[in-house]
């Protein structure tokens, strides 16, 4: 009895030691490259620092400075405007495409799904390049198509009013396939008999879509909405490649402004404070998602 117990203790220790050993590389990595940085970000944000000279503690000065920083406020507005184009754009189009794909079957469905998914294989940088080429204000392909269709040439990325929507179109194009696949998977999970019953009751395709499909894919919908919103608030690559924030700051979103403050003017303290505000915004979005997901669990 005693012997057995002792053996049990030794066994447990060996097991625990193996576990700690196996976890060590990742835990260390997450600690140094994710966890410490978020705390360090807040610490830097309380200082005035250019990255080379000594840090000077300034308390919450960086945070109060933001309120009067018109460029920062504009960058937040630009980000919100971008999100308001990008998020509903992705949501509506992906859901529509998923519903259309679901009405097709077998080879036809997988063929069109592959076509819609193809932009996923194009990097953000390269997507920005292809579209900048097509958006060329002089003789880009889109202007040639517009002229051919009897319209007028547009300035697209060179225009302060058109640049942001033009970039949003590319952002939507890039992630449309990804989100269509999410919606398609969710729609396929809905039991077929729901639709059959509704069809017998005389509900048309559109009516079935709104009364059965939409309510039953709520969880995926919330996921897509929140992920897209977080994506919009973090947008950088596409905008930096296509417009670099211009013309006249018309496309300078939060992350572009943070990047500029950190790596062009080397105001690391101030840019860290900006980044921390962005963190709070993204955190709030994540919490909203978790709350809605939780409340959905009860009804399923």
């Amino acid at each position: 009895m005693i012997l057995k117990k002792r053996k049990g203790v030794r066994k447990w220790n060996k097991e625990a030691l193996t576990a700690y050993g196996m976890l060590l590389p990742d835990v260390l990595g997450l600690l140094v490259f994710v966890f410490i940085p978020i705390i360090y970000a807040f610490y830097i944000s309380l200082h005035n620092w250019n990255g080379l000279s000594d840090m000077v503690f300034t308390g919450l000065d960086n945070y109060t400075r933001m309120i009067k920083d018109q460029r920062f406020i504009n960058s937040i507005w630009t980000t919100i405007k971008y999100a308001l184009m990008y998020v509903p754009g992705v949501f509506v189009l992906a859901l529509l495409l998923a519903a259309l794909l679901n009405a097709l079957h077998g080879k036809l469905q997988s063929f069109f799904r592959t076509a819609i998914f193809l932009p996923y294989a194009i990097s953000t940088v390269i997507a920005g390049i292809i579209w900048s080429f097509m958006y060329n204000p002089m003789n880009g392909f889109l202007n040639q198509i517009l002229v051919w269709a009897g319209g007028e040439k547009q300035r697209f990325l060179a225009s302060t009013s058109q640049a942001l929507p033009s970039v949003a179109v590319v952002g939507i194009w890039l992630v449309l396939g990804y989100n269509t696949i999410l919606f398609l998977a969710a729609i396929k999970d809905i039991p077929k008999d729901y639709y059959e019953a509704a069809e017998i009751d005389g509900a048309g395709a559109v009516q079935r879509f709104f009364t059965i499909t939409i309510p039953l894919i709520k969880e995926t919908s919330v996921f897509v909405l929140v992920m897209c919103a977080i994506g919009a608030f973090q947008a950088f690559d596409l905008i930096n490649v296509m417009t670099a924030g211009g013309p006249a700051s018309a496309t300078t979103t939060s992350v572009l402004y943070i990047y500029e403050k950190a790596f062009t003017t080397f105001e690391l303290g101030y840019s860290s404070a900006l980044a921390f505000v962005l963190f709070i915004i993204i955190m709030a979005l994540t919490l909203v998602q978790m709350k809605i997901m939780r409340s959905g669990e009860g009804t399923d």
Partner: peptide, 30 residues
């Protein structure tokens, strides 16, 4: 595997998912 602190370690690992890259890029650079 069974070991002390498993639940805490797991929760802590998952919580790092909430930290977006653009927020930590400055300290990471440092």
């Amino acid at each position: 595997l069974e070991f002390k602190g498993k639940k805490i370690i797991f929760t802590w690992i998952i919580s790092t998912l909430m930290i977006p890259f653009s927020v930590i890029m400055i300290p990471l650079f440092v």
